[in-house]
Amino acid sequence: MTKRILIADDSGSIREMLAFVLTQAGYEVLSAQDGQEALDKAPSFGPHLIITDLNMPNLNGIELVKNLRGMTNFRFTPILVLTTEGQDEKKQAGKAAGATGWLVKPFKPEKLLAVVGKVLPN
């Protein structure tokens, strides 16, 4: 079964890169431009994994994670947050909100796939 991944990032280029790499690797990908859009799209898309940026307009990543964890369907779904170098407190805040793990930007495609594989094995 194809695994579905929902990505939330306000940067078009990051979204584009994530979607491209993940689609190539055989995942089904749906993009959202911010946390609110991701939250709206999640129930009908039913992702097996959510990858979200932290700084986004409307609803930021931390709030998105908290909201998702409050929904029955996503209580145990893996969620990766995208952080940048030296954002240890962000990482911690993400984990405290219920994120599964993190991915430090910038990253290469193979790193992205390795981290995805870590929390979402085939």
């Binding site: 170098e85 991915l103 910038p106 290469k108 790193k111 390795a114 870590k118």
Partner: peptide, 13 residues
């Protein structure tokens, strides 16, 4: 605290 290129503090590598 300079941003490194593709960094070390990554999981799995």
């Amino acid at each position: 605290d300079q941003p490194k290129n593709i960094s070390e503090n990554q999981p799995v590598f």
